[in-house]
Amino acid sequence: MGEPLGFNEYSAGKAIVIELKGRFDASVALPVKNRMRSLLDDTPFIIADLGQISFIDSSGLGALLASLRHASRRGGDLRLANMTEKIQQVFALIRLDHVFKIYPDVKSAVQSLKE
């Protein structure tokens, strides 16, 4: 079933990595979106580590989409890493797997920003 969402942040290269853990649903989408907006005031690049997300719904996806747009307007990007198959399937349902840059792990997402 999974626990309520929590998150942890750290710097890696040009980006801030935000590790999300737990259920990313409508009850937490707004605070996550607001936190990402706040992070984007400090850096144009965010990498969201979704490896410990146990569930995501359309509100969670919406928060990521809104953050991606916010990053793009600032000349940056929101890149995703470490998705489980379960989370990948939800992205594919609404065709977001072609909208985000998605990496198998955080290391390769960080590396992509050096290129």
Binding site: D57, S58, G62, I94, R95
Partner: peptide
């Protein structure tokens, strides 16, 4: 799916 709004996907899903 062209404009990709940040909401309105629930019933579709």
């Amino acid at each position: 799916f062209e404009k990709l709004p940040s909401n309105g996907y629930g019933l579709f899903i």
